[in-house]
C-alpha cells in the first residue's frame, strides 16, 4: 500500500506567559520533531499523556495551525508550501472530528445546516440533493432523520459527536483525523461508532489517524499505534505487538493503568513516580527519565532517538536500543 501522508521532523512551539505579570515569555514545545508515515487505508492510533501534543499534531497536519518546522507530504506535495487555493482543494480530502463536541458545532445552526455547510461550499448540488445527502449521513451515523431541524444544545454530548462525524464524512474525505471521537459516547454507541468507522473505512478506503486515550479502543481500531510523550513519539508498532510486547517503560506503564471492567481484579500497576514534567521546561535527555523506574545516568544526559528494534517496531529508549 502506498504512503498517503509523510511527516518529516514536524515542530510546533507555543509562547506562553510566565512570571507574575506575564512579562517573561517562555516556550511550550508542543510538538517536537515528529516523523510518521501514514499508509493509505490504515488506521494509525495516537495515544499519550494529556498535553503531550496529540491534538496539536492533528491540527498541524490539516494546517489548521501553522507548523514552525518540518514537512507534511501529501500526494507528493508539501502541504506547508501550498497556496490558499490548492490548500482549500486538498483540505477536502482531509477532515477532522474534534475532541470537544460542544465547542466544535455552531450553536446557531441546525443539525441539517451544520452537515449541509461543507456540501454547499465544496460541491455543486441543488437543495434537494443536499437534503438527501444530509439524511443519508444522519442515517450513516445512526441519528434519527427527524433530528434534522434541531439545534446542537438540544443534544447530549454523544449525539453531538455523531453530528461531528456526519459533517466530516460529507465531503467524502480520504483521511480523517479523529481527535477523541468516541470519548463522549457510552460503550454501546461507542461500539456502534467504532464498527461504523471500520465499515466506512472498508467501503470508502478511508485512512484514519485516531487520537484517543482509551487504549482498549485504540488497539481495537488501529493497525499501528504511536505512543507520544512530551511532543515526541516514543514507541510505534503494530497494534498487536504494542500490546503484547511493549518496550518503552512509558508504554508499559500506560498499558498497566488501563482500568479493568471487573471489580474482582486487582491489577499490578506500574505507578509512575515523580511529577508530570512541564512542557515549559522539559527534562534534559530522555524526557521520561523523571518518572521512569529504570532511568540511568545516560537517560538524563542524552536524548534517545526513535530506532528500529524489530520489523515495524520503533522505540526511543536507551535501555532498549
Amino acid at each position: 500500500m502506498p504512503t498517503l501522508l509523510k511527516v518529516n521532523d514536524l515542530k510546533k512551539y507555543f509562547e506562553v506567559n510566565k512570571g507574575l505579570f506575564g512579562r517573561q515569555k517562555s516556550v511550550v514545545k508542543a510538538v517536537d520533531g515528529i516523523n510518521l508515515d501514514v499508509i493509505e487505508g490504515e488506521t494509525i492510533g495516537l495515544v499519550g499523556e494529556s498535553g503531550c501534543g496529540k491534538s496539536t499534531t492533528g491540527r498541524l497536519l490539516l494546517r489548521l495551525i501553522e507548523a514552525d518546522q518540518g514537512e507534511i507530504i501529501y500526494k507528493g506535495q508539501d502541504l506547508r508550501k501550498l497556496d490558499n487555493e490548492s490548500l482549500r482543494k486538498t483540505r477536502k480530502d482531509m477532515q477532522m472530528v474534534f475532541q470537544d463536541p460542544y465547542g466544535s458545532l455552531n450553536p446557531r445552526l441546525s443539525v441539517g445546516e451544520i452537515i449541509r455547510e461543507p456540501l454547499r461550499t465544496h460541491f455543486n448540488m441543488n437543495k434537494e440533493e443536499q437534503q438527501k445527502r444530509v439524511k443519508e449521513l444522519l442515517d450513516v451515523v445512526g441519528l434519527n432523520q427527524r433530528y434534522i431541524n434541531r439545534y446542537p444544545h438540544e443534544f447530549s454530548g454523544g449525539q453531538r459527536q455523531r453530528i461531528g462525524i456526519a459533517r466530516a464524512l460529507a465531503l467524502n474525505p480520504k483521511l480523517i483525523i479523529a481527535d477523541e471521537p468516541v470519548a463522549a459516547l457510552d460503550v454501546s454507541i461507542q461500539a456502534q461508532v467504532l464498527n461504523l468507522l471500520k465499515d466506512l473505512q472498508k467501503d470508502l478506503n478511508l485512512t484514519y489517524i485516531f487520537i484517543a486515550h482509551d487504549l482498549s479502543v485504540v488497539q481495537y481500531i488501529s493497525d499501528r499505534v504511536a505512543v507520544m510523550y512530551l511532543g515526541k513519539i516514543v514507541e510505534i508498532a503494530n497494534s498487536e505487538t504494542l500490546y503484547k510486547n511493549p518496550q518503552h517503560p512509558y508504554t508499559k506503564a500506560l498499558l498497566s493503568s488501563i482500568p479493568v471492567p471487573d471489580p474482582t481484579v486487582k491489577r499490578e500497576r506500574i505507578l509512575l513516580e515523580g511529577d508530570v514534567p512541564s512542557p515549559l521546561n522539559p527534562p534534559s535527555g530522555c524526557s521520561f527519565h523523571t518518572r521512569c523506574p529504570f532511568a540511568e545516568q545516560r537517560c538524563k544526559e542524552e536524548t534517545p532517538s526513535l530506532l528500529t528494534v524489530a520489523d515495524q517496531h520503533k522505540v526511543a529508549c536507551h535501555l532498549v536500543n
Binding site: G142, S188, Q190, A191, N195, Y220, K244, I258, P261
Partner: peptide, 25 residues
C-alpha cells in the same frame, strides 16, 4: 447486559457487539 457485552476486550480485534437500534425519542 448489552452494555457489558459492547466493551472492546483488550487484545481482541473481534468485531464488537453493540446493542442494536436507537433509544426512543
Amino acid at each position: 447486559k448489552g452494555l457489558i457485552n459492547s466493551l472492546p476486550k483488550l487484545g481482541s480485534r473481534e468485531r464488537l457487539t453493540p446493542i442494536q437500534g436507537q433509544p426512543p425519542q
